[in-house]
Amino acid sequence: MRNEIVIKTQNLSKHFGSFAAVDQISFEVYKGEIFGFLGANGAGKTTAMRMLCGLSLPTSGQASIAGFDIYRQTESIKKHIGYMSQKFSLYEDLTVIENIRFFGGIYGLAPEVIKSKTESLVERLGMSQVKMQLVKSLPLGWKQKLAFSVAILHQPQIVFLDEPTGGVDPITRRQFWDLIYQAADEGITVFVTTHYMDEAEYCHRVSMMVDGQIKALDTPAQLKKIYNEDSMDEVFYRLARGAKRQAD
């Protein structure tokens, strides 16, 4: 599982005027890996992620996603990735089924495929009872699980999750991570940003971003060993303490 590279960046940078939001980051992510992308607010995580998703163009540097170039092949990239934004990203005034069908539709899945996938997905999430209900009537945890499942409906190679578990209780968070492991087992690479350090422990490898640069990148166990700390919390604190940027 460690051989196939699905994300590769080299000196990737994004400047806003003279401000380097992302400053020459280079890293690789392997197929089927759960890659934690950590950093304080304002460290440049979201900007970096937006470049990787093709939402914004880099100022300089190279990157390839699922084997496609980030400058010239954004359309191909979009077909092979899934994305779940920080804000809740389903339509509240559509039912569970309608949301699944809509996103299946815009990813160009055939109607038969959408139909069978909708059924199995609703079944798997235990949402058969509520499938005709509007999404706004569901509890937040359910919504987030649904949003994640919709994001990987088209079986992307990589799924990007931008702080997917914000505001969710610990039990639901645990269940959410079960879904993430399931996806990784199916060979989907998971690229996830988070503020919760217990979640960082769940990742195969994590990177720590400070002031637009990647200051550390390794397995959680290795990081703790290098910095001689007991928890990821402490590791993160030691690295982020040196930050010059104020969190926004």
Partner: peptide
């Protein structure tokens, strides 16, 4: 506002 625009822009649509 709801963040769905981002999701749409990431999609191949």
């Amino acid at each position: 506002e709801s963040g769905t625009m981002e999701v749409l822009l990431v999609s191949p649509f």
